[in-house]
Structures are given as C-alpha cells and as structure tokens.
C-alpha cells in the first residue's frame, strides 16, 4: 500500500544481521577452526571439534540427554493429553477459570519452580521428613535422573497441554456426534475422530517440550547435581568454565541439528501444517 513505509524495517534488517545472523555464523566459524578467529591470517580450519564430539564419552552425553528429553516428553504427553481433554470438556462457564489456574504456576520464575522441588526432594526435604516421621529410613530422591525428569515435567507440562487444548477446542463437535450416530463407541470415536484431529496440537506440544528439555542446563544443574553431564550442561561448561569455544560451538551446532532433524521428522506427521508456528523448518 505504501512503498515508502518499507524503510521502517531497514534498521531492523541491519539489527537482525548483526545480532541474529552474525552470531550464528560466528558459532559455526568457531566450530570449524582452532583457537581464536579474530585474526584472519592465523585462521586454521579443522574438523577435529566434530570428530571429538563423536568420541564415545560425548556420544554418551548426547544419548543420555536425548533419552531424558524423550522420557520427559512422553510423560508430558501421557499426563497432558487427558488434562487438555478434560479442560476442553468443562462447561464454558468454568473453563477459563480452570485454564487460568492451570497456567498460573507458569507465571512464576522458572528457577523458583525448579528450586521448589529441591526443598521437596532434598535429603531433609518434605518427603524424607515424612518418611522419618513414620520411622522409615530416608531415601535419596534428589540429584538423580528421576528428579531431573520431575523438574522437566513440572516446568514443561503446560507447553504440552495448551496446544492440544487449542486443537481440541477448535474441533467441530458435530463430528463426534456424527461418529456416535453412525454407531461408533467411545473408544472408536476417540481413536478415529478425536485423536487424529488433535494430532497437530500433539505434534507442536511434543516439539515445544522436547526442544527445551534437550537443551536445558538449569534443571540438570539444580536437580541433577554435578555428577553426570548432559548436552546443555556440557555446553555451559565449555563456554563458561573451560573456555573451549571451538568444541563448545561444535556441540551447540550438533544440538541444533538434533533439534532440527527431530522437528522436521515430526512435521511430516502434521499433514495440515497447522501445528508448528514456523514455516522455516
């Protein structure tokens, strides 16, 4: 409509180049070089950083992180689908209140939500105190895989529930009635009508949980203790403790690849292309 208004975007185009494109190019550059890239003359290209990533130690770290993220995602789906379904069935008068109550904890700082579990699962936390009161010995609940999974499910559950709820509430209720009229029982209706129609929501839910779960370093750091490495904590270590930017960049690029590949595989199931927000991948 107004050709001149194009210019409004030009400053941001430059901004995007400096603060979005250039940093990622730099990460890539660091991942294929040795030492610093500042000086063009002494630049040294290498694939050693990627070779190091395929060392059994780091492959183990990657597989452990993917496993943990997968378990958390599956748990979120198993717990979250019924929640989304039940909320979508609630009478419209109360539905928004229940939804608000469900989202409310998300408004609290993520670190505090994670920290809260430290006080519950800790060695002299609530659960162990309760056990002691009953005369039972304390059990070690914190600083292992299950405490990380609890933290992830607690933090990311709404990311699974909200897209599924949106898909379910957009669904035409007459389809369910039609299915019943045509003689399908509840189970068949669910499997043949409701589930396929909510699939886009399920897929974006899986993406939205898996992505932060695989890259998180806060939850493993606080609830997992220092003993085992995960891909997120490995990257944090390499950048902020050991200062090995080259290998750290390679790990970051590999993590982005893992996320991209899993997103594109998932998007194949999403026939309507409704689920995910981005059309880039």
């Amino acid at each position: 409509m107004n050709k001149k208004q194009k210019f409004f975007a030009y400053p941001y185009v430059i901004w995007m180049f400096i603060f979005i494109v250039l940093p990622i190019v730099l990460v890539f550059l660091y991942s294929i070089t040795t030492k610093e890239v500042n000086n063009i003359k002494t630049i040294n290209f290498t694939l050693n950083n990627y070779k190091l990533f395929f060392d059994p130690l780091y492959i183990g770290v990657t597989i452990r992180s993917i496993n943990l993220a997968l378990v958390s995602t599956i748990l979120c789906l198993v717990l979250g689908y019924p929640i989304a379904y039940i909320i979508s069935k609630i009478h419209s008068k109360h539905r928004n209140t229940v939804l608000l109550l469900f989202i409310l904890p998300m408004w609290m700082n993520m670190l505090l939500r994670t920290y809260a579990w430290m006080t519950i699962l800790g060695n002299n936390g609530i659960i162990n105190n309760f056990l002691n009161m009953l005369g039972l010995p304390s059990i070690r609940l914190l600083y292992n895989n299950s405490s990380i999974i609890i933290g992830m499910v607690y933090n990311f559950l709404p990311f699974m529930v909200l897209p599924i709820y949106t898909a379910l509430s957009k669904m035409d209720q007459h389809l369910v009635e039609a299915s019943h009229d045509l003689g399908a029982d509840n189970r068949t209706t669910f499997l043949k009508v409701i589930l396929p129609l909510s699939l886009p929501g399920v897929i974006s839910g899986i993406i939205m949980v898996f992505m932060p779960a695989v890259s998180s370093f806060v939850i493993p750091r606080l609830l997992g203790g220092n003993r085992s490495l995960y891909i997120g904590t490995l990257i944090e270590n390499l950048f902020l403790v050991t200062g090995d930017w080259n290998f750290g960049s390679a790990v970051a690029i590999m993590m982005m690849l893992i996320i991209l590949v899993s997103m594109s595989i998932l998007n194949r199931f999403d026939v309507d292309k409704e689920g995910s927000g981005s059309n880039l991948w």
Binding site: P23, I24, F217, F239, A252, I259
Partner: peptide, 11 residues
C-alpha cells in the same frame, strides 16, 4: 534454544 542464542551473542 535459549542457550544457543545466549552463547552466540556472547561470542
């Protein structure tokens, strides 16, 4: 992921 945005800006 936030961690990638963060570290790329740090670099």
């Amino acid at each position: 992921p936030d961690i990638v945005t963060g570290l790329s800006l740090m670099i």
